[in-house]
């Protein structure tokens, strides 16, 4: 379910720790553990950016070479993966996908600390729903800024664009948000709406955005 678009030809350059066997074991020492989580989180973000991954299915990712170093035959255990994701979530770099949240506009605002944890609890309660994680190698605010800048540059303020146009259209080719995940895009657009810079209208499949 990992959404990848046009995997780049070059292989992802894994960091040095990825080849260190002890990196795949949860460290009991608190300071080392913190360092471990930091390194894992930056590894996940770099990996996601490299492969343009927006959502990560944890069960599938556990088998991918992100968390499974086949050369070393070492893997990060699923509970530890969840811990890494939780750590990223606290940092505002990840978010569990809410069931019924997929792609649709949602009123749930972005990552507030308490809000995030409650959503994770809900995800855990929902069972399978907690498997997919949105990886914010750019935070929604940053995406929002990018889109705003694009609209500004191309002088499309006041005009109406469809969401499809934004991600898949010819004009956005070459921008970073081309081929962006719908869920993340909606979060970014919602931020713009809140700021009063945009307005979303339309129904489920044909959403339109008007920028001011």
């Amino acid at each position: 379910m990992a959404t990848t678009t046009a995997p780049p030809a070059t292989a992802f350059p894994f960091p040095r720790e990825y080849f260190f066997p002890a990196f795949f074991t949860r460290q009991p020492n608190l300071t080392i553990h913190h360092a471990q989580l930091t390194k894992w989180s930056s590894l996940v973000l770099a990996y996601a950016r490299h492969h343009r991954i927006f959502r990560l299915a944890l069960s599938a990712a556990a088998e991918s070479d992100l968390f499974f170093n086949r050369a070393l035959d070492r893997r990060l255990a699923p509970p530890d993966i969840r811990e890494v994701v939780d750590f990223m979530r606290k940092d505002g770099r990840a978010e569990y996908l809410q069931p019924g949240d997929a792609g649709s506009s949602s009123t749930s605002s972005n990552n507030g600390g308490g809000d995030g944890s409650s959503s994770s609890l809900a995800a855990a309660a929902a069972g399978g729903g907690g498997d997919v994680v949105l990886i914010y190698w750019r935070k929604p605010q940053e995406w929002a800024a990018l889109i705003e800048a694009y609209v500004d540059e191309t002088a499309q303020k006041g005009s109406v664009l469809t969401v499809y146009e934004l991600t898949e259209g010819e004009n956005t080719r070459g921008t970073e948000f081309h081929g962006m995940d719908n869920g993340v895009l909606m979060k970014a657009l919602n931020i713009l709406v809140k700021r009063g810079k945009a307005q979303i209208f339309g129904s489920e499949d044909s959403l339109g955005v008007k920028f001011f």
Binding site: E17, F20, Q27, T31, H34, A35, Q36, K39
Partner: peptide, 11 residues
């Protein structure tokens, strides 16, 4: 097994 700490410390 114990390794020298290459993960690093966060002070």
């Amino acid at each position: 097994k114990f390794w020298k700490n290459y993960i690093g410390k966060t002070d």
